[in-house]
């Protein structure tokens, strides 16, 4: 016991030295700003000044004024829809890449094609959907050419659906990547064993492949939800008047509305929601890992 503690003490110093820089960095640039943000969320606004205070009025306002809580709920709804859609589209794609494509080269090529859009500016990719869904856009032109409609429809753009479509497109790679890795890690002989034991391919998928790739689905869905929840570009470009999301509201509190205390409170709520989600995801993932041993 004693020898062990001596050893621990001796090794503690260089370890501390090694981590001092990153820990200091994280403290200064992450923890301190968050602390300031949380502190300001309790302040009061006396236009045009912010007065240090400790009161919960800002939080009360967020949860009592529909102007604010509807936006939070709408953001959660859109993020959930995007997560669902990206998972439902991304999983089959990853499955196809891993199990259906036979040659390694073709698989690598197609996987690259999934990743390549991430190299293109996010703004540009969002903007692209504007030109697809707009009144003079590709979709309307195609439908007109086909004779399905004779006047361009403005229904496609500037609503919540156009945001869900755009964000789903943008976040699919974030689902494909972890699911692809999870599926590739499943030993092939487990699938053979399942068939050997009389279970058909669909049963094998439900009882072996799906449970063993759940970890990839959880991490992909978590990343997608968190990123979609905090998105502020899609609402501006394709969202329209009823597409405002939390991030836009935040922006205006720190800008035009000039209400930092309320903005800080909102940011704190968003932070808590995302942290709760990450905690839940880690719990689920750990439960899965324990099950796998």
């Amino acid at each position: 016991m004693r020898g062990k503690s001596v050893l621990a003490r001796r090794s503690a110093l260089p370890v501390l030295g090694l981590f001092a820089l990153p820990v200091g960095w994280a403290f200064l640039l992450l923890i301190v700003p968050y602390g300031i943000m949380v502190a300001i969320s309790f302040w009061t606004r006396q236009f045009p000044l912010f007065v240090p205070d400790f009161q919960f009025g800002n939080y009360l306002q967020l949860f009592s004024d529909p102007q604010y809580y509807t936006v939070i709920l709408r953001t959660a709804k859109i993020a959930a829809l995007v997560t669902l859609a990206a998972t439902c589209l991304g999983y089959p794609l990853a499955y196809y890449l891993v199990f259906v494509i036979k040659t390694e080269r073709l698989r690598a090529l197609l996987y690259m094609l999934v990743i390549v859009p991430l190299w293109v500016s996010y703004l540009l990719r969002t903007y692209t959907w504007k030109t697809i869904l707009g009144t003079d856009g590709a979709l309307n032109s195609a439908l007109k050419w086909l004779g399905v409609i004779d006047q361009p429809i403005s229904l496609f753009l500037y609503n919540q659906w156009s945001m869900v479509i755009t964000l789903t497109y943008i976040f699919i790679p974030f689902v494909v990547m972890p699911v692809f890795a999870a599926l590739e890690n499943i030993p092939r002989n487990l699938i053979e064993a399942s068939e050997d034991l009389g279970v058909r391919p669909f049963g094998t998928f439900l009882r072996v492949i799906l449970p063993l790739s759940a970890g990839g689905v959880i991490s992909g869905a978590t990343v997608t939800f968190c990123l979609a929840f905090g998105d502020f570009v899609a609402p501006v470009l394709v969202g329209g008047p009823d597409g405002t999301m939390v991030a836009n509201l935040l922006q205006s509190q720190f800008g035009a509305a000039l209400n930092w205390p309320l903005g800080s409170a909102l940011a704190t709520v968003v932070l808590l929601i995302v942290m709760a989600l990450l905690w839940l995801s880690a719990r689920l993932d750990r439960a899965g890992r324990v099950a796998l041993g």
Partner: peptide, 30 residues
């Protein structure tokens, strides 16, 4: 899944997300 043979795999190929009993039951509930 359509022939009356079963295999004991070289590295066993046990389902890691199931208990021993569930592994054995797996091929009996089809």
């Amino acid at each position: 899944f359509d022939r009356p043979v079963n295999t004991v795999f070289q590295d066993y190929a046990l389902f890691p997300h199931m208990t021993v009993a569930q592994n054995i039951r797996y091929g009996l509930t089809v």
